[in-house]
Amino acid sequence: MSTVKYFQHHQIDKEKWDTCIEQSPQAVIYAYAFYLDIVSPFWEAIIEEENGNYLTIMPLTWRKKYGITFLHQPIFCQQLGLFSTEKEVGIEKIEQFLQIVLEIYSFVPRYQWNVHNTCIFKNLESIFIQQLGNKNFTFFTTHHLALSRPYSMIYQNYSKDRKINLKRAEKANLEIVESEDIEPLLAMFKKDIAQKLPKGVAPNAYELFRKIFKALKVRKWCKLFYTKNTKGEIRAGALFVFYQNQIIYLFNACYQETRKENGRTLLIDYIIQSYANSDYIFDFESPEIEQIAYFYKSFGAEEIPYPAFINYNHLPFWVNALWEVKKYFQ
């Protein structure tokens, strides 16, 4: 008989954990132990175990601030949630996991489940709204492009603007080169993109990404490409993750002055051409930004929803009041 329990970090058998992820239909790179160790070093979990094997698991990526421990979504980690070796996860099990989560955490600013959890959540939406409240349960969207057709057929579904911009990129005489040096990509992002983000970029984000890149490279799960001009100068770059049948557009950047060259369009199209007529799904890993979503849809990608908890706050009134005071004096 299986048991479902909360596990602290030191209690988790990471070999069993990764075996469960590998055998799970919901498998994503973000949920592997090595990845969680980088983005949330002391992550914990809820685990269903039977005969020493992990059947269903849920990573708990927590932080602590002002003495309050809360569940949150780490940077560079779009989707977590439930992962199971079973083909279908029953309603009772979902409710059991959710109950344990809410017993542990009174505060969940944001926690994102994976796209394969969507059907479960849509079927049980009323239950989650009852448990969490209408304002604390929502669906976000990423974009997927199936590469199962020939490139010519995929290209037909590019928008008119995307086709025009691809031709501009080709006329710019850009060369696509594969690299193992992540620093130019981070430098481009830091110079011309980071400052435009509403909340900026955490000081440790760049070092975290270096660790992620190194770990993915060791496993041969990623490819890094740049565009260069005729002078050999780097103009744009992108890191693509290859795992099972997924290609994830994990990170990209270009200089402000090179945007009109459409180097990133060229890189995405290059990957689509290279892996067309295959079982791969290209995951654009979309943020909730309309302009970026429009760009991804211009390649013919379709919207794929995934569930999320947001702004769940059952902390005592006096704790919230003290927190607001501390934020005011920061």
Rank of each mutant, 00 (worst) to 15 (best):
I247P: 00
R168C: 04
T258K: 00
H144Y: 14
F137D: 07
K196F: 10
P203S: 11
L186V: 02
F251M: 07
T230L: 14
R264Q: 11
N173K: 15
N245G: 10
I164A: 11
E175S: 11
R235H: 11
A202S: 13
Y151V: 07
N262I: 00
L132V: 14
N252G: 13
R259Y: 02
L216S: 05
L197M: 09
R210D: 05
Y255I: 04
A236N: 00
K196G: 11
S159T: 08
T265W: 01
I182L: 08
T138R: 04
V177G: 02
I248H: 10
A202L: 13
R219G: 12
K163G: 08
M188D: 00
Y151E: 04
E180S: 15
A169I: 02
A236F: 00
N262Q: 07
H143V: 01
F240E: 03
R149I: 02
R259D: 05
Y206N: 06
K135F: 09
F137Q: 07
W221G: 15
A172Q: 04
I164P: 14
K167M: 07
N157T: 12
I176V: 10
E178L: 15
K190M: 11
Q244L: 11
S152I: 13
E261M: 10
K191Y: 05
Q130A: 14
Q130Y: 15
K211I: 09
L147Q: 06
F209W: 06
Y243E: 12
I248G: 05
L267R: 01
T258Y: 00
Q156M: 15
P203Q: 13
A205C: 10
N165M: 05
Y226E: 02
P198R: 03
Q156T: 13
R219H: 14
S152E: 14
T142H: 06
G237K: 05
C254P: 03
L147S: 05
E257I: 00
F251T: 07
S179H: 06
T230E: 13
L250E: 13
L166Y: 07
K167S: 10
A169P: 05
G232P: 06
A205W: 08
S179Y: 07
F242L: 04
N262A: 04
Q156L: 15
Y243P: 10
V177Y: 01
L239F: 06
Q246A: 10
F140W: 09
Q130L: 15
L185S: 03
L267C: 01
N165G: 06
E170D: 09
Q256R: 09
L145R: 00
V241D: 06
T265V: 09
I212D: 09
I176M: 11
N204R: 09
R259A: 03
L174S: 02
Q130P: 10
F213Q: 04
L145I: 00
A146V: 11
F251C: 08
Y206I: 03
A172C: 03
